[in-house]
Design a binder for these strands. Structure first.
Lengths: 219, 219
DNA sequence: TGTACATCAGTGAACGCGCGTTCACTGATGTAC
DNA sequence: TGTACATCAGTGAACGCGCGTTCACTGATGTAC
């Protein structure tokens, strides 16, 4: 019994990488459709109800088609998460390049951070199942690294740009300040995109005020 | 086929309430053991790997024993979440009663908030699967209400106490400020308890600095 | 203090279902000549 | 421009497993007299 069991439970490690990469348009469409549909289903029912069979069905595919590209459902979620985080991160990097961090007054700082945060909100709204993806990768230990490496990448860029401008505080203090701020911004995104309401922009704005006020300390 | 299917899929709504409440010590121990074990398994593998059979097995029970108290695994998680949130909330209420919100200087404000936040961290650390419970209820649509009603309950108390002391800003602005602050505090808990590191107390402290600085605006 | 009985608590064994996944195959697309 | 062929993309049908859950039952606990 034990032998048979061990022989069957082959996948000791769950792989998160995609398998085949599509070469033709048809394949690319399928690949993308899988991610979109998975996002929709995730938003509707949460991760534990997300199944490969349901994804395939709604995408108009037979189950094996999905396995051409993804080894399992964790890999699908991981790909969704990676793409969403990349979009969010690239927006921040572009914002830095465009001088988002050059502000002379407090009000200007607030408004610049606000512009960036509004953009992050919109990216998340537009992404299929965006906020559900963010929540799912927090809740699934297997996917923590994807989230943390994205956060750390952004944190490092912000650190490099802030260190030059900061006169007070050690590097360590600055790093902590940045980490806390990024987590606040994630929380703000999850708040307004996850439970939409009439005050969304105000909520976003106040989160930015908090961050801007706080970073006055490092000037 | 369709008829048979409909007849079988009886539970149209998933109930979240507990079933029997134990009357004897033996039953109470079992009830508690289920919650503890569920928390451990949740922390180890995440919610989608959490199954009633595994919970029963690790708790030293046969599967039907669990169904005496809980109608399904969502109810178990809901009970865990409710208890953790109650502990967190009651600590905040006690802190308010003990004068946590009476501070004359900024530094005193920071230190008082810090004391409360450190307590919340410890409560979450001590609770089996604490941080995993917090993450899971975010990720499972069915359980969102439990989290939000706890948050709103705390928000309302803070609002009532802050409104008296606040001279500037409308009620609406104050409510938004409180909501954002509470979400930041949740994020801070998840950060330090979920990814423990040497800087935990500093991270906690800086989150409190952010909140204290921000609320200076309402004085 | 001891026994009978009601109720509480938990078990052994099994169920049907849908899940993740695979196999051997067919159909679609692009390319060389 | 047309055909042969290699490769890419997707299918039909099925599998074994473990999941959630239930049934009819046994054993433990407390209580009335």
């Amino acid at each position: 019994l034990s032998k048979a069991k061990r022989a069957k439970s082959a996948p000791l490690a769950i792989l998160l990488e995609t398998k085949a990469t599509p070469y033709q348009d048809r394949g690319r469409n399928t690949f993308d459709a899988i991610l979109v549909v998975a996002g929709e289903l995730l938003a509707e029912n949460g991760f534990e109800q997300l199944t490969t069979n349901k994804i395939a069905e709604r995408a108009g595919l037979s189950p094996p088609a999905l396995y051409r590209y993804f080894p399992n459902k964790y890999a699908i979620l991981n790909e969704m998460a990676g793409r969403l985080m990349d979009l969010q991160d690239e927006a921040v990097f572009a914002w830095i390049e465009a001088g988002g961090m050059h502000a002379s007054t407090l009000d200007e700082t607030i408004e610049k951070i606000f512009a960036s945060q509004m953009q992050a909100n919109q990216i998340t709204r537009d992404y299929p199942g965006g906020v559900s993806v963010m929540r799912a990768i927090r809740a699934i230990p297997l996917l923590h690294d994807t989230r943390l490496s994205s956060r750390d990448r952004v944190a490092e860029q912000l650190f490099l740009h802030l260190r030059c401008r900061s006169s007070r505080g050690s590097d360590e203090e600055l790093r902590i300040a940045i980490r806390v701020s990024i987590e606040l911004m994630y929380a703000a995104i999850e708040m307004v995109v996850g439970e939409p309401g009439p005050d969304d922009d105000k909520i976003t704005h106040e989160a930015c005020v908090m961050i801007a006020l706080y970073f006055e300390r490092f000037r």
